[in-house]
Design a protein around this nucleic acid. Structure first.
Lengths: 371, 371
DNA sequence: GCAATTTGCCAAAACGTTTTAGTAGGCTAT
DNA sequence: ATAGCCTACTAAAACGTTTTGGCAAATTGC
């Protein structure tokens, strides 16, 4: 601050040289080695000297040139997030929520996040560039598919990275995930235990592992309860946004035997609720949804009506950056982290018309009936 | 690619030295000067030599070390976006939409975006750091208030920056904005011309200039038409997300004289529509909204019913990064850019019950009646 | 055929740090 | 008294580029 150039940009281009370690050395009559070591907390600097140095550094507004540091230390304190740019994905609120968590964590850990979008065709070239030009120390990979090419590439390149979700491959790599399989196994089991025999499951795109694992959880729960596969009708929303929740719910309602609907996202659950209110306000239906605690979506109006599996995506974001930074600082393979989920079971799980408020107390859950 | 380290991270930390300009020089029996000049397109390199160089560079997978380049050129090809981290702002879909545009443009211009979130209290220290440690070449500033401190700081620091919106100060700086004042002036004028005498305006937080300017546009239009200030009831949503649109619309409906509602965001308009359908399905109402062409929100169901002022936030994002890069490359002050808006006037502007489909043809707009 | 110009290349300095390998000088233990 | 060891500092190299200033050889102009 201080000087006022005639126009913005002048200082950046003209001779607005910022204060360097040499300036400090000159001012203090010390070598740049001592300055550097003092500022970086090495023990071989006298207490009085260290104090003089930090006083002058403060006064002159010294900030080490990041690029010089990066060049010599080979650490950038930058991580990359390469987002697919295909019009719809980017604005997915789930992504935004995770990103918010990552950014907050990065700030705390003194890392910066380089965010890039690229079309699927050129996506890998961005990874290739970042790996080879020393732009970043590591990568965050979101929304993996099975045997994701990004994971393959980064494993091969030997760079730190962490996946939000799992890509199904064996072997160690860094990831942060909820127990998608287990959560939906439990959910389906719970509904079966409460007498539901025909479920609809409005899931995401099962070419992504998160949705695939949820699907398997539901399928296995039904199979383990001795119910036929046809007990669940799975409807996939390829675009998590938009009107998928509404339309798919209407489809689900076509089967009169369906007494419960499971949603993979609160966004779709809320829209689905609207569809139910509109098309079948009197029909007894139980609803469960994954609740990622999106800051968009206010589920409080549905508090008593939706059974929820809650897990904060923002928290997952924090875990992602934490594991990535850990990898950057510690030799060894990446680690997997499970983020816990909390079940919040609605007051009554058995079918009830949504349009009416649910009675405060409902009868207890029936026992699981083996077929 | 190629070598397979025993675990991820090994290569990054261990001796996986990437190929440098010196390796090329060695391989080719040339000086590093010639390599550098060849690769950077200088004319004083023979054609045959240049070809040999790029062939070998290609074969060895040479990528210039970005940090070495940054150190010597003093250009990072990075720009910063510092986002306020206060739980709700970050997930604002308007922000995400602009960011998507910025990222797409940045990719095309070969720039990277460093995204940071910080609490309002510490926000300025991030700017301070980025200005002084050579992390970035410039800044993108979103959602300005009047006399925004970020603009003051960056003007003072003399760094390239561009504001999405204007902060009301005189003097030259870089910005990209729509004509908020003019758009809402026209909108209000149009409604008055169609006989509406009592409007509701569901606006954003007027401590942000975008909302303030819209408010002024509406106020001035009514004043110019000779209508008293009380002709418009302004309701401000401090949080653009959530249920603001629904609740504020209910408030707007309390005044039975209101025949038209103006919305500052399609998000609120859609919620408002739900409120109207629910609370006053038969009431004649005309609706207009700013349409930022959010990829979330599907306005097609309301195509005939909403009068829209359309302008793509994603496009604005592209203009932002374009102007910022221009500033980085050209001496001189920043420039202002107006992004155009398109009016799409609904078939019938005069009051009509929303619950019924509008007739295909309506009578012509009445002439403006001076008071 | 010779001077002037152009062409094609290069050595060395610079960017601003960190790190390595020291070195004086004072202190301790014997 | 002396060998050995701390303490507090430093010179120089290194990181991997770009850029400056120059210099031979080839080409051109006359």
């Amino acid at each position: 601050m201080g000087r006022k150039p005639s126009h913005p940009g002048a200082a950046a281009r003209a001779g607005a040289r910022s204060v360097t370690i040499k300036d400090l050395a000159q001012e203090l009559g010390l070598s740049i080695t001592t300055i550097s070591r003092a500022l970086n907390g090495y023990p071989d600097v006298g207490d009085k000297t260290r104090e003089r140095i930090s006083e002058v550094a403060q006064r002159l507004g010294y900030r080490p040139n990041r690029n010089a540091q990066r060049l010599v230390t080979r650490r950038t304190h930058n991580v990359a997030w390469v987002q697919q740019d295909n019009d719809r994905k980017f604005v997915d609120p789930h992504f935004v929520e995770v990103m918010a968590g990552v950014l907050r964590g990065a700030r705390a850990l003194n890392y910066d996040v380089v965010l890039t979008s690229e079309t699927p065709e050129h996506e890998m070239s961005v990874y290739d560039r970042y790996v080879n030009d020393n732009s970043v120390d590591g990568f965050i990979v979101d929304l993996p598919r099975e045997n994701d090419r990004r994971v393959s590439f980064l494993l091969d390149a030997g760079r730190p990275f962490v996946v939000h979700g799992r890509d199904g491959r064996p072997g160690a790599y860094g990831w942060v995930d909820i127990d998608n399989y287990g959560n939906f196994y439990q959910l389906a089991r719970l509904f079966v235990a409460n007498g539901h025999r025909h479920l609809a499951f409005i899931n995401g795109d099962e070419s992504f592992t998160y949705a695939l694992h949820r699907r398997r959880g539901v399928d296995d729960a039904l199979a383990d309860a001795g119910l036929p596969p046809a007990s669940v009708r799975v409807l996939n929303s390829l675009h998590p946004m938009g009107d998928a929740g509404f339309g798919l719910t209407q489809q689900a309602l076509e089967d009169p035997r369906v007494t419960a609907i499971l949603y993979s996202s609160a966004l779709m659950a809320v829209e689905g609720h609207a569809a139910i209110v509109r098309n079948a306000p009197e029909r007894p239906l139980a609803i469960a949804t994954m609740d990622d605690e999106l800051h968009y979506i206010d589920l409080t109006p549905f508090a008593g009506q939706f059974t929820r599996v809650r897990s904060s995506l923002r928290e997952a974001g924090g875990a992602l950056i934490a594991e990535l930074v850990r990898q950057c600082n510690t030799p060894g393979p990446g680690r997997g982290v499970i983020v816990p989920s909390r079940f919040e079971v609605a007051a009554g799980l058995d079918p009830a018309p949504l349009a009416q408020p649910l009675p405060a107390a409902r009868r207890q859950a029936r026992k699981l009936q083996p077929a």
